[in-house]
Amino acid sequence: MADIKYEDGDWNGLIRNLATDCVNKNIGWVVRRLVLAACVYFLWQERNGRIFRDVHKSSQDIYNKVVDNVKGRLYGIIVKDSINTRNVEEKWQVKCRRAKIVVA
């Protein structure tokens, strides 16, 4: 959903790629960073659950948590109206809040 295209399979390379791709701070960049943060968080939770509580979730459950988390955060951000914003809203099935434009 976030259009993160990285086929090398190297976790460090993916992190480096996302960390250095911050020049263009558009809505797509924000979504990629939200997805990365949610993945790290929920994978860490899953790891801890397996190690300390012997609780296992399916990969689909983790995916659903990531998607729900990102959607929730997208509902809360304030964005400028643009084609990119509308594309993200359509893809993620959310409606972001719009920045109010003040005309002087």
Rank of each mutant, 00 (worst) to 15 (best):
F42G: 03
V30N: 04
V79M: 14
G76Y: 04
I77M: 15
L43R: 01
V23I: 01
A99L: 10
K95A: 10
I77P: 04
H56F: 12
D21I: 04
K100V: 15
R33H: 15
N87E: 14
K57I: 00
I62Q: 01
V55N: 08
C22K: 14
D81A: 04
N17F: 11
L34T: 03
A2L: 03
Y41A: 09
L43S: 06
E89Q: 15
E7I: 13
H56G: 03
S58G: 13
T20N: 07
V70H: 11
V103L: 10
W44I: 03
V55G: 00
E7V: 06
K5T: 15
I27G: 01
V35K: 01
E7Q: 05
H56R: 12
G9C: 04
K5P: 00
R32I: 09
N87P: 02
A99H: 09
E89Y: 10
Q45I: 06
W44F: 09
R97E: 10
A19G: 00
G72H: 05
A37V: 09
Y75R: 14
W29H: 15
V79H: 00
L74I: 12
V67R: 12
I51G: 01
N17I: 00
I51R: 03
D81S: 08
V94E: 06
F42D: 10
V88S: 02
Y63M: 07
C22T: 13
V67E: 14
E7S: 11
I83R: 13
W44M: 06
K71P: 07
D21T: 03
K65H: 08
V103H: 10
N26P: 04
R73M: 12
L36H: 07
R86Y: 01
I78N: 10
K57N: 05
V40M: 11
D61Y: 13
N26R: 10
G9S: 09
D3W: 13
F42M: 00
M1I: 09
